[in-house]
């Protein structure tokens, strides 16, 4: 990439979210998570460990806040001051929201995290210098830094356990940032496979590890620009727009009976993950 190339294509390189002249085509990966279905069982999180070579840091490092779980399950209690949480807890799977206008992308000094044309917020490990500015600017704090060289740390991957490592993913050494990738290795493999067949991916052909394992099917993943995809239909039914910082439906007086929302969308990162509110029975 030369300077003239940079200048000529400046507008293209700097597109961080789809605009009218360059829409997402043919892919925009997005997710929908139904909190009413999520039971908080943590299977997705463990699937993520298994798929993405996430190190188990151990008790001491966990205590220091250096855990690496790309997907964490948050547990919220109702805040109405009752003696017992008699409507249970709310579980929320939180991982990189693959924001369309991601705060992390603009600040990285070396461009190690940037937006792909298929709507992912990619993290290029080998480009990362470890300034951690991306994490500093992430409103969701879903980026995890390799504070130690986990591959060589004792008891993280003893010799036998190295055989479990997924060879499709780079093993991250010390000093690089990492985060949920929407299982980009599966997306790329899928894209390659269908290119050979001369078509684009159909809904369900690529599953993320968390989606695949979720016993209650709370996680839906797919191509948002494909009208056939479940995720497209869900977003549409919930009237959630990718590039809105306040949803049209939320402007109605008294709210709506739709459950879809995105977290911290008022900050305008345009997250690619839509959550659907938990429901609690009113008759009891």
């Amino acid at each position: 990439m030369s300077v003239s190339n940079l200048l000529e294509n400046w507008a293209e390189f700097r597109h961080t979210h789809p605009v009218d002249d360059v829409p997402h085509d043919p892919y925009k990966w997005a997710m929908s998570i139904d909190l009413d279905a999520c039971s908080g069982c943590n299977a997705c999180s463990i699937a993520c460990y298994a798929e993405n070579n996430i190190p188990v840091v151990g008790k001491d490092k966990f205590e220091h806040g250096q855990v690496m779980h790309w997907m964490r399950i948050e547990r919220y209690w109702p805040e109405d001051g009752r003696e017992f949480p008699d409507q249970g807890a709310t579980f929320l799977p939180m991982m990189c929201q693959q924001c369309e206008a991601a705060p992390c992308e603009t600040v990285c000094p070396v461009g190690a995290t940037n937006h792909t044309a298929d709507g992912l917020n990619s993290q290029i490990y080998n480009r990362c210098v470890g300034s951690r500015y991306c994490s500093a600017n992430c409103p969701f704090k879903v980026r995890y830094f390799n504070w130690y060289d986990y591959p060589t740390t004792e008891n993280v991957w003893p010799a036998e356990m190295t055989q479990q490592l997924n060879p499709d993913i780079t093993l991250r050494g010390k000093g690089v940032m990492e985060k949920c990738t929407f299982c980009v290795q599966r997306i790329r493999a899928g894209e390659r496979a269908v290119k050979n067949e001369g078509r684009i991916l159909r809904d369900g052909e690529v599953q993320t590890a968390c989606q695949q394992v979720c016993p209650t099917g709370a996680i839906t993943f797919g191509n948002l620009v494909d009208p056939e995809s479940k995720v497209h239909q869900k977003w549409k039914a919930q009237q959630v727009e990718l590039t809105a910082d306040e949803q049209e439906k939320d402007k109605e007086e008294g709210g709506t009976d739709l459950r879809g929302y995105r977290i911290l969308e008022e900050l305008r990162p345009y997250p690619s993950v839509m959550y659907m509110e938990r429901v609690r029975e009113s008759a009891i």
């Binding site: 869900k234 039914a237 009976d257 459950r259 977290i263």
Partner: peptide, 22 residues
């Protein structure tokens, strides 16, 4: 606690219409 931020939200069942959902 969520400290007033809209993170994990809950609706009462009489406020939702599940039939419209996909």
């Amino acid at each position: 606690a969520q400290h007033g931020k809209k993170i994990a939200m809950t609706k009462s069942s009489d406020q939702v219409d599940l039939s419209e959902e996909v």
